[in-house]
């Protein structure tokens, strides 16, 4: 459940700080786009390599 973990972690950060998330859930790319849109925390990176998805969220 990468979104749940990411949402808990990002709340511990301050404006401008970044959170890197690695996930193996194939639905994660669209989930992170939705999460970013809804919460306003910009999604700075969204990439896949060898079945691992990597995201970088920036605290708004």
């Amino acid at each position: 459940m990468p979104i749940l973990k990411a949402s808990q972690m990002i709340e511990t950060l301050h404006t401008g700080q970044k959170l890197e998330v690695l996930a193996d859930d194939p639905a994660a790319p669209s989930d992170f786009v939705a999460f970013s849109k809804r919460t306003g925390h910009p999604l700075r990176e969204n990439a896949e390599s060898g079945g691992t998805y990597r995201f970088v969220l920036e605290h708004k």
Partner: peptide, 9 residues
């Protein structure tokens, strides 16, 4: 439900 909370709902 928990995802809705994560999205601020």
């Amino acid at each position: 439900a928990t995802t809705a909370r994560a999205l601020g709902m």
